[in-house]
Design a protein around this nucleic acid. Structure first.
Lengths: 345, 345
DNA sequence: TCGCCCCTCCAAAGCGCTTTGGGTTGCGGC
DNA sequence: GCCGCAACCCAAAGCGCTTTGGAGGGGCGA
């Protein structure tokens, strides 16, 4: 069933039927009702391909998720981010076009999406400290929103969490507990968010006149194994750190494993704070444990971020000539069972 | 730059240019070369929207990922599965349309995708024991591949791993180690794969004349917390199980946490076997640990499954009238450090 | 030289929708 | 009775591509 057949069956023109269905005012309410009833009865849905061509809008948003590292690891936050964004897209009638490619191919991918016109806008994730995707997308004149930020960030739209403040606060929290030997297990510091987090840690240390010791400042792809091996190695040092900051709950779980394996107790012998994106299958809430959540964490639900990013991007698509939208969310420090006063030694 | 402009600039018709670009034989090689050179110089890429309308093919594949549980948890395997599938789609020129919706809305979503013609085929994931999506898609006459299987599974195309055999084998492994008190932390048993895994466990127990004790057979959404709370509760029982099978590495990590917290040693006091989908950020390989991988596991890389599923689905799209494709992969039992002989008691 | 065929290329007709630019009709005001 | 204006509705022109059904011209055999 297509528009022409529906129009013929109603004895109306395609124009009128189209207008009736799309809510235009030039059609009598009685006629509109007839059309809607017939469309429903015939189970008619406009062909999206034709509509996209006719309107020039793809009603589709592209997410290009970069795979990182040799193993092409998928950043685990991305599933929940997508779930959040997808909620909004579905509500607003947008489709989601997903493309997962190695970091080197992302530029080509964006270029292609723009050239073929298969999307109305794109989401940019995990920006690097220097990231050519942003000038590229500006050149391509395609609406985009950056989740995170980098470089000269007054010229484009972004959504970010206050990474420096979050990690500064977390470090202060450890310092206040008496910790002086503080380590960082960070994401890859070519990524902007990781660089910021490191700065937060260093700022806090510096303010108290403490050096940041290179042998305790680690960066890498944030897997569980990475957290494990790094912690394992650091615990063998003399002196060993008494507290560890982790850039994500996943390496934090690896750290926990290494600590347990070394016969130490988390939150007593070694403290751990991580950033918690509130991943749905790695919950860190207190629900099930009356003593509080397992990890002390800087918390910022990634799913909510996905929702907000989607809203902002859609706003940009609808009103392309507005000034850049920028939004910075604070994180929340939730105290859990993974931190405690620095051991006496 | 569109096709007409390119054709005009070359002094050729749109027909010829189109044919030259798409590799049709009715064009002289010299002309084709000229066209290709001009297209490249002008940075011409055909408009995908127009092409989709003209060809009637969407060159897009839909993935409808069901969110499960009250928290609308995203199954963690889905990111790596998508990464695998996306690799193949990119290679074959297909786009990936992603839709994440609650389990109740999946039917509507499929119906919509079919009606609007925005996809050429769809991937069905996490089939339930009775799943109305399969008859629905058959009725809609849209090519689909089921990742997993259910019901009368001769009539449609699917890809699955041998879940019964995998968990039967894992249970036998524990039994051979002397364990007699064996627990299962399973996924939701309305899902077909979870039901099969349970059957595998029960078959193995039954063969040795052992009962499967309901208080040790658990099912739920496979989060880390779920593994933790379930294990925590079981360890407080008298007698407590000496071995636990987990349906995924994520609850297994929760189990490990509960075991450590109870002052017990994994692989000595309590053994754990899990199914390992080889998630990229939760690696279980031996690379970094000479004593072997952390968990003994039935292993089946989900990313490879994604690749294979994509290949099969594309084959179905290209040749819709062929008999159903069906493929069953075996899992591999990798022995790690989480299992050991049953304790003496 | 003629006729046929093959090699190249082209005009035009879609694909199924939206949207522009009118046409008709009916009614109130003068 | 005529004009102007809403209120409704329509025909047709796209959107940018693919594809059908030729058309023209050169080479070859008769």
């Amino acid at each position: 069933m297509n528009l022409r057949q529906l129009a013929d069956s109603l004895g109306l023109s395609m124009t009128t039927v189209s207008r009736a269905l799309n809510g235009y005012p030039e059609v009598r309410e009685e006629t509109r009702a007839r059309v809607l009833a017939a469309a429903k009865a015939a189970n008619y849905t406009p062909n999206a391909r034709a509509r996209r061509l006719a309107t020039g809008r793809a009603m589709t948003i592209g997410h290009v998720v970069p795979l990182t590292g040799r193993e092409e690891t998928v950043n685990p936050i991305f599933a929940d981010f997508l779930a959040g964004a997808g909620e909004i897209y579905a509500r607003e009638g947008y489709d989601l076009l997903l493309s997962m490619v190695g970091a080197e191919e992302t530029a080509t991918t964006y270029r292609n999406l723009a050239a073929t016109g298969s999307v109305d806008g794109v989401m940019v994730q995990s920006p690097r400290i220097v990231d050519d995707r942003i000038p590229l997308l500006q050149e391509l004149k395609i609406p985009f929103l950056v989740h995170g930020r980098t470089g000269e960030y007054t010229t484009y739209s972004w959504f970010d969490v206050a990474n420096i403040r979050a990690f500064r606060r977390a470090t202060d929290f450890l310092l206040d507990l008496g910790h002086r030997r503080i380590a960082l297990i960070n994401g890859q510091e070519t990524l902007d968010f990781a660089a910021r987090r490191r700065k937060g840690v260093e700022d806090a240390l510096q303010e108290r006149g403490l050096p940041s010791r290179p042998e305790w400042m680690h960066q890498g792809v944030m897997t569980e194994q990475y957290g494990y091996t790094t912690t394992h190695a650091m615990l063998a040092m003399d002196p060993a750190p008494t507290a560890i900051l982790c850039s994500s709950i996943i390496p934090a779980m690896g750290a926990r494993r290494a600590i347990a394996e070394a016969g130490l107790t988390l939150g007593r012998d070694v403290s751990v704070i991580c950033h918690d994106d509130a991943l749905s299958y790695l919950g860190n809430d207190a629900l099930t444990s009356p003593q509080g959540p397992p990890f002390t964490a800087t918390r910022s639900p990634i799913r909510a971020a996905g929702r907000r990013c989607a809203e902002m991007l859609i706003a940009l698509i609808r009103e392309p000539d507005q000034p850049p939208l920028q939004e910075l969310w604070e994180t929340e420090l939730t105290v859990g069972r993974s931190t405690g006063p620095a051991p006496a030694t």
